[in-house]
Amino acid sequence: MQAGAPYGIHALAIGAAIIAIVATVSLNFVGMKWLGGLYNRHRERVGGPVGHHSMLHMVFGLLCLHVASMLVFGVGFWALLQVPEAGSIDGAHHAGMFDAFYLSAMTYSTVGFGDLVPKGPIRWLAGAEALVGLMMIAWSASFAFMEMSRHWRDDLR
């Protein structure tokens, strides 16, 4: 634990991490369910396997879910930065929403810390986001693979 940071601030950061985890997993679950239903309705309309262009729509939909997930954590970082003693983002001249979102994108994608690094209790949120991002990316890749293997034919254009 960082010297000087009260237990309550750590509890607040852990609470923010839990809220962001629940929001992100729920968002991705509902979003993938909706995308899968959309994909299946399209398949039923065309009377069989769908073409490559439909898979593109699904991939872009999954990317939108990931961006929304990064935004959830970015808002969490930004909100915690407003709390005294909750931490800081080293490397940011003025840790605003864009820096918080950038840090979130680097953490969610597990690229890692480089030019911006979380310090203090907000690291709880960063650790949770790295785990959730890895899981959500793997989950959406599995989802896309399953949909492709079930419904996609190479001879359709």
Rank of each mutant, 00 (worst) to 15 (best):
S88W: 10
G4Y: 00
E129F: 00
D154S: 07
Y108S: 00
R123N: 15
L12Y: 01
M135E: 15
R45H: 11
G47M: 08
A23R: 05
L131T: 11
M32Q: 01
G8F: 02
A95S: 02
E44W: 01
D115P: 15
E129A: 05
A20I: 08
V117A: 10
P121M: 15
E129Y: 01
R157P: 12
W34Q: 00
S69W: 07
W34K: 00
M146P: 10
W124E: 12
A3V: 14
V25F: 05
R123E: 15
L65V: 08
V50D: 07
M1E: 12
A100K: 04
A79C: 10
G114V: 02
A141M: 11
S54V: 13
G37N: 05
F60S: 11
W139K: 10
A105D: 06
G120I: 08
P121K: 14
I21M: 12
G4K: 02
G61P: 04
L56A: 06
V111S: 08
I137A: 04
A105M: 10
P6H: 11
W152K: 04
D115A: 15
L80Y: 02
F101G: 01
L56I: 11
G127V: 05
M70R: 01
G36S: 02
G61H: 03
S140C: 13
M70S: 08
F145H: 10
F73T: 00
S54E: 13
V111K: 08
D99G: 11
